[in-house]
Amino acid sequence: MLKTENIQYAVDNKKILQGISTSFKEGLFHVIVGPNGCGKSTFLKVFSGELKPQEGTVKYDEENVLAIPKNNLAKKRAVMSQQPELQFPLIVSEVVMMGRYPHFDFRPDKIDEDICAETMKIADVNHLADRDYLTLSGGEKQRVHFARVLAQIWNDDSINKFLFLDEAVSHLDLKHQHQLLQTSKSLYNKNVTVIAVLHDLNLAYAYGDRILFMKEGRILHDTSDMQQIDTNIIKEVFEVNVTVFNLTDTKRPVIVF
């Protein structure tokens, strides 16, 4: 269980997060949506222990995230950032292997190699294993990082694990968007709780078990019942008029502009 209480975060007196209290239930796929600059990424950074909030604490199973040793924390939560900067030539398989770095000292064990091979297959990058990372397209790079973060939390299903995705599908084609989200959703059977920031509302509806709407550093709406999401909510959060259709077969809404 991931829990926060009254998180406040500000930079130079500009309040970015204003009192966020919420909790995330094990094994579910949570989606955060909201307009640019509403604090989504900061929210993820505070949750993943990268940023220290001025007020409030983030607790992973009752343990303050900032008190967990970094290497232990890395074994239970992985973060896929928007745009990792890697300007040096490295082969793809080594980039993926970085996900296993918290798990071995100097040389990867057989299990690390096996896990990387498996996650590279899942992220559909196994054919790129020997390529120079710098020569890949944006979408391919993103899939490589997905393989990396998967490898990081792939084993030891006895502990609760967390995966944070910050716009993880932004460069992906249709097929790979769905593959990535499907894989993330199926991670519940590995005891992984997923928290994803997404921009495409239809993807959010299609995959989310619960959706949090953020605006100006606050959570405005928070629901697990997709059919509750109506035109007014979208209008309030994004200031855009849309039409919402509820598909009878999936019980999930689709929005049309």
Partner: peptide
């Protein structure tokens, strides 16, 4: 090489 933030995420101090 991935950046300081990413390095933190994979357990590097």
């Amino acid at each position: 090489l991935l950046g300081e933030e990413e390095a933190n995420y994979i357990g590097v101090d």
